[in-house]
Design a protein around this nucleic acid. Structure first.
Lengths: 332, 332
DNA sequence: CTGTTAGCGCATTCAT
DNA sequence: ATGAATGCGCTAACAG
């Protein structure tokens, strides 16, 4: 590529490079006359300042990193979009990487992003505590955790009220006569899966309801495999799933067994990815405000950067029950 | 954030900064003794070289930009994932931006990415010719167009054989007795929609088949609205849709009208996003190798960068017919 | 093999 | 209001 630098502009307009810099950044007053000359030269040359040189000089890159499990998962894609829109509006660029929940990949990505001198990090990692990240935070790296919190880290986060989400689902099911529940949850080491597990068990401890709980994985495949292999599944009135993808897998496996949803058994999801509305049967689920999560997290992060906040702040968003066709009123 | 630089490492290990640089880059031999000292200091300090300083020095950022319509669209998310995986394996990082097909946003993104000194660009833009981009390409910017080519630009690209895709669909439909076709296409100004339109009209020009063609938009909404408002839709044996999302919208609108797919009318999609397999009815469509497109495009781009190729190369991937449940054999 | 030095493009002192 | 000089962190050319 070519290389028109501030020098070229200075030369063409017949001023010093500092003057050029001043008109471009507005950091100090410049006479109208010279300003015009500079602007003209800039246009003529199609010059645009090197933000990498600027970064080196200013110590800020106006770039935010985002480490997430998989951009291919609509849940994350929507969060990313929320972050992207907010950040761009405020002059920041987003650089991201999919980690596939892999600890090594996660660390590698962290190194890469750090070496790129990101100003802040949005992080949705595997559940395990990450010493390297922890250390960087202590050293001043601004991070906000999204959807998942890492144990032992006292930092900012944006999550959804998982307990409330589970209770919304259970309320709906119980009001409609359900009395026994099977919970097909996501990855065991994951923050959200754990929270949902706890909420579920708490609600069940009255002993009034028959129930079982299993950790699997947050994917269609995991749901499908689980339901395919699980015998006597009709002993339950309802199956709660760790997310919508699991629910899709469960429903498909059930139908293959000749079991109809919701006529014979109710199934619920979690997330409300856009597709859930169009699934057959349309999924009863709990909506997480994905786009908003991305926005809020970015807002929080930019605030931390701007104000040099070391204090952590947490935002807990409200989930919303969405009743559709995959749950029914039992005969009782 | 803190700032442990190469100087700190040099000081701690008692060598010069060039020695540190040499062991880190392997650009020149260093005695075992000093190497060890340096490595130890690096670990102790948790030092990682500033790739922004490196970029400034080397003139390469090891960063690739990707401008696309919307990361939230699974079609693009999968392409991005393919690109991401390939690029990361080769030491490159991906910066992306969603343009929503908006010309201004597209240009703004281009400026931002350029100022970040990306080494190359993956581009899926609105269909219209983009003079600014054109100019940058002439100035040496390495670009590969993905899925969509811009008119008047002679650059590298990776697309799918749209004509073949349409013919695969039409072959399947015709073999199964269909004789009249309605094509609900995507955005009119888009390269792929145009290609598919041409392929369709060419096949129809024999006059043997009743047919109509309309441009709408590449979204669920567009398909839904179109089908809701279209009267006498049952005069056609089959509806071809510009992509899977449109097909979903069409099918839903049809069902609301009490028209059953495929019993009363066949519907096809284009893309084969992962969800199409699980739709009810499972969608007959044409698979675009999305992940592979991202990979190939990245491979091509890195090649252009490495070899300083100015010559353009085009890769046309083969689409694949996927017959599922949304098409039937007509009685005839 | 190793240390010293110049300079990548820019913003910011410090002079004037 | 303007120009000259300095340094951000790093690599490569230049001396030993």
């Amino acid at each position: 590529m070519k290389k028109v630098s501030i020098k070229d502009v200075a030369k063409l307009s017949g001023v010093s490079i500092s003057t050029v810099s001043r008109v471009l950044t507005g950091s100090a007053p410049v006479s109208k006359e010279l300003t015009e000359k500079v602007i003209k030269a800039v246009q003529e040359l199609g010059y645009s300042p090197s933000s990498i040189a600027r970064s080196l000089r200013n110590g800020a890159t106006k770039t935010i990193g985002f480490i997430l499990p998989d951009i291919t998962n609509p849940f994350f894609a929507h969060i990313v979009r929320g972050a992207e829109d907010y950040l761009r509006k405020h002059g920041y660029t987003l650089i991201f990487g999919s980690s596939d929940q892999d600890k090594n990949e996660e660390n590698h990505l962290l190194d890469v992003l750090l070496s790129k001198h990101i100003d802040g990090l949005l992080f949705t990692g595997s559940g395990d505590s990450n010493p390297k990240l922890l250390r960087k935070i202590e050293q001043g790296l601004k991070v906000v955790f999204l959807d998942r919190i890492i144990r032992g880290v006292n930092s900012s986060y944006v999550i959804v009220d998982n307990k409330k989400g589970i209770n919304l689902l259970l309320d709906h099911l119980i009001e409609n006569g359900h009395e026994s529940f099977l919970f097909v949850n996501g990855d065991k080491n994951t923050f959200s899966a754990k929270q949902r597990h706890v909420a579920f068990m708490e609600r069940m401890k009255s002993g009034k309801y028959k129930h079982e709980h299993y950790f699997t994985g947050f994917s269609y495949r995991a749901g499908y495999n689980f339901a395919s292999q699980f015998d006597d599944i009709l002993e339950f009135d309802a199956i709660l799933c760790g997310n919508d993808l699991i629910a899709f897998g469960v429903i498909d496996a059930l139908e293959e067994k000749g079991i109809h949803v919701p006529e014979q058994i109710s199934v619920t999801g979690f997330d409300d990815i856009p597709f859930s509305k169009h699934y057959k049967p349309a999924l009863t689920t709990v909506r997480q405000p994905m786009y908003e999560m991305g926005q809020k997290a970015s807002e929080l992060l930019l605030l931390m950067i701007k104000e040099q906040l070391s204090t952590a702040e947490g935002i807990i968003l409200d989930p919303e029950l969405v009743v559709r066709e995959s749950t029914r009123r039992t005969k009782i």
